[in-house]
Design a protein around this nucleic acid. Structure first.
Lengths: 152, 152
DNA sequence: ACATAATTGTTTGGTAGCTAACAAATTAGG
DNA sequence: CCTAATTTGTTAGCTACCAAACAATTATGT
């Protein structure tokens, strides 16, 4: 009787949600001693790996909304981990880079690869590829339906 | 050089996140005219489909934390859509049920099946099954690592 | 019986995400 | 050149999620 809607909740969509939150929870538990959230970690990771970056580029690289990133950057600046400077020729843009404290903290952080490895490490790569393709296709369709086809 | 972490971001985990948020965004856009959020819709759906339910059971049925559901129920009660009564013999428990306004609103809501159908409708069922199995397995591993194996 | 455990719900404070509206700076068009 | 559109970042207000601490109630154990 309620198979139809129930299937929406307990199938790919539902498991995508559960898997996302389970991974995020593990990241946040691991990072809690360092007072960092999961997306804050991604920003630090990018700055540590790729050096100073324009905030406007991070929006696309991390696939967030401007407003979301703005808040996350504000938190990292408040903690003294990231410097947000108005440097360049375009006075609208902000450049983000690690402060000394940010570099020090980054070098102290544990390696988070174990999360990905534990979750997906010994799953058949062919199955992984199929799962990615299914999620990617579904995401594209949903974005299309949402009004703008931003499935690049 | 950054293939390892990058793969964590742009593979199953990353797509699970994008897929979850894309589906949720479409739900919320559809429900915005009715002033309902996606999880609020799930609560109404459950009450409309299964009748009065103990709040404590909904926690498990919708796979949320007590605190999360508490806030969502408070919003629905504030909007006059749900009645939260302290009825039974156990004075701690609350029973939730739709009010008349809640039943009326529910009957006016559009059918959301189109979201699931659009996203997954014409994907090979065998691939869907593999995707579910991958996500389910990964979620179980993550839960285990998080300390308590609640992979029922 | 009575102190202690466990259960149920709420509150507080935090992260992460979105839209909409705004300000400032830059770019385009006429 | 000057107005209008676009880009960039912030703010405000919302949903949804979590953990930790609290109050109230019920269940347990001695």
């Amino acid at each position: 009787m309620n198979n139809r809607v129930n299937s929406e909740f307990s199938s790919v969509g539902g498991w995508a949600k559960r898997c996302y939150f389970a991974g995020r929870a593990l990241m946040e538990t691991t990072l809690r001693p360092y007072d960092l959230g999961s997306t804050q970690w991604y920003v630090l990771w990018h700055l540590a790996t790729n050096g100073p970056t324009a905030q406007r580029d991070l929006v696309r690289l991390l696939d967030l909304e401007r407003a979301t990133l703005s808040g996350i950057v504000a938190a990292l600046v408040r903690k003294g981990l990231v410097d947000q400077s108005a440097g360049g020729k375009d006075q609208r843009q902000r450049t983000l880079q690690l402060t000394e404290a940010g570099k020090t903290l980054w070098s102290d952080l544990p390696d988070l690869h174990f999360i990905h490895d534990a979750a997906f490490g010994d799953i058949d790569p062919a199955d992984l590829a199929i799962a990615i393709r299914v999620l990617q296709t579904a995401t594209g369709r949903l974005h299309d339906l949402l009004g703008k086809g931003n499935n690049e």
